[in-house]
Design a protein around this nucleic acid. Structure first.
Lengths: 210, 210
DNA sequence: CTTAAACTGTACATCCGTGTTCGAGTTAGG
DNA sequence: CCTAACTCGAACACGGATGTACAGTTTAAG
């Protein structure tokens, strides 16, 4: 260690899916990758409950030092972005598997149950995102599921299976509200997470039925 | 104005300044009272939108200096407590005027419309309170309206006018969720504040009807 | 008119969260 | 086993928010 290293080796978080852009990076060490996973998982878990959780809280929850976290993510915003991006990916993947054909009410029911799991898992993550990321970026997160849900709603309205005497945007807001309300109720112990999906489905369906 | 002798007074809000002298209290001056009102009003307005608003923001919105605010309220928590207390008082007063007799569905509708106005006015105030005040103190805020609403719900369920196949706590949560969802939707420009009460009433009623 | 209460801005001490730097210890992997 | 990558804790700079202290001016009220 007599000679000073030429430059401090700063590891830029380069977990990009797809091909590596630009130059080739050395393969990341195994424990590094493992730690990044721990951090993202912990951040998701913690931020879903408390969107104002500090970097310290997240690092502690991940079982790593605060400095180590900064070694993988430039800033809090970067970390939040990564977490949100993964949540979006999981959400899209989960919703893409939902069968939207057949009776509109049944289709909506299936979508509601799937959405419940996601809402319950990610909770207040959207709040954390909104506080750090530009609103445009959050827009994208909700856009996918929104248009998907809107499609089902429109079909149900035209088929006469759902009431059409309210703005469709309002009906989407109601679904959102019930989903988040259920998450809060579970977290408060008023209902169990087993009962939640059924209650959400029945209640939302009742609210939207003619 | 008049008769008030400068002798008998009671200590309410003190002008904090350090090592106070012996113990001579005088009646509060008129402009002081006026400023306190401005501060509380501004705090209510600001905190209802952004529960994390700083003391500076509130003072600015009230048109007074930051130091003046501290002259009337020891700390941020004190201010929030005062604001919340007043909100509770207004809420109780407004809900006490609602006629809960007659057809349960009509009674619930009236209560929903009244609750909407309060929710829209106070918005995220409950969040600000929860972050600063002990949870027990927030409990009290919701307890009054809650038991009142629960009474109407129970009556409606036993009369067969409302569905009884879900936990009553869940139904209360749904009402809460729809109210807050509507407030968010208005604030987001999706619906107008004129349409909101009707939509809230119709939607909640539909969600709770057998 | 006189006085004390109240207001104001500035400045200061403090706490907390963020982001960075440093030196040293630990571990993966050739 | 040797080296570079990785991790860790402590310490520092910075900014924002909370309270407090001070000194000068305005204003209510007797």
């Amino acid at each position: 260690m007599a000679t000073t290293p030429p430059a401090t080796t700063r590891t830029t978080a380069r977990t990009g899916a797809g091909a590596a852009d630009g130059g080739r990076d050395r393969a990341k060490r195994a424990d590094a990758v493992r730690n990044v996973e721990s951090i993202v998982a912990a951040a998701t878990r913690v931020l879903a409950v408390d969107p104002d959780a500090s970097i310290n809280d997240i690092a502690k929850a991940a079982g790593v030092g605060r400095v180590t976290l900064y070694g993988h993510f430039d800033s809090r915003a970067t970390l939040v972005r990564e977490v949100v991006d993964r949540a979006i990916a999981q959400t899209d993947a989960a919703l893409a598997e939902v069968d939207l054909d057949g009776d509109p009410r049944d289709a909506l029911g299936r979508m509601l149950e799937a959405s419940w799991r996601l809402t319950h898992r990610f909770g207040a993550l959207v709040v954390a995102g909104s506080q750090v990321l530009p609103p445009e970026e959050m827009r994208r997160a909700h856009d996918g599921p929104m248009t998907r849900a809107r499609g089902v709603l429109e079909r149900g309205r035209q088929a006469g299976a759902l009431r059409a005497d309210m703005p469709i945007d309002w009906q989407l807001s109601v679904i959102q509200a019930i989903l988040h309300g259920a998450s809060a109720a579970v977290h408060r112990g008023e209902i169990t997470s087993d009962d939640a999906p059924g209650l959400v489905r029945d209640t939302a369906l009742a609210a939207l039925t003619a």
